[in-house]
Nucleic acid binder design. Structure first.
Length: 152
DNA sequence: GCCAACGTTGGC
DNA sequence: GCCAACGTTGGC
């Protein structure tokens, strides 16, 4: 089983939004980055766990845990001209963008702020804490996962 | 294939 | 709101 971290702007879609979905599940749509796409299309498997990270907000940090419940399939929002994430270069016969479905698992006891994550020498290799990082979906090692949970 | 211009991300 | 960092685009 693998571990991941997925970013979302809470004003767009927060962990509480996910929790309040009737089935507590949501397609992770709108990702328009090839590295992130490749991970969702090729590598994320049912049962994998991911940290739900809140970005671009008052206290950026890890808010909770979600689980992959459906593996990579085409991102339909790319086909819809009225959608914010419409991409005319992605067509149903040859989709450019993929996503996975994630399900709410739990909130952490507190949001673990980015500033704290950056201060941990055990986490210095995480893509998240490297400056200029813009990946919205990234792998997390078991060691890093366990370390972060101890900071809860 | 290079690289300048441009748009986006996201911390602060 | 600012702006550094980075990915993408498109002219040549």
């Amino acid at each position: 089983m693998a571990y991941w971290l997925m970013k979302s702007e809470p004003e767009e879609f927060s962990l509480d939004d996910l929790k309040s979905r009737p089935d507590k599940t949501e397609p992770w749509d709108g990702v328009r980055n090839y590295q992130a796409r490749n991970m969702m299309r090729d590598e994320m498997k049912i049962g994998d766990l991911a940290f739900f990270y809140h970005s671009n907000c008052e206290t950026p940090g890890i808010a909770g845990i979600v689980k992959v419940v459906r593996e990579g399939y085409p991102d339909h929002t790319a086909f819809d001209p009225d959608d914010d994430h419409y991409d005319p270069k992605s067509i149903p016969d040859s989709p450019r963008w993929y996503l996975v479905d994630v399900e709410f698992v739990r909130k952490l006891k507190r949001v673990i702020p980015l500033v704290e994550l950056k201060a941990e020498k055990e986490l210095k290799d995480m893509a998240l804490v490297r400056r200029g990082n813009r990946l919205s979906v990234m792998p997390v090692t078991k060691k890093q996962w366990d370390h972060i949970l101890k900071m809860e």
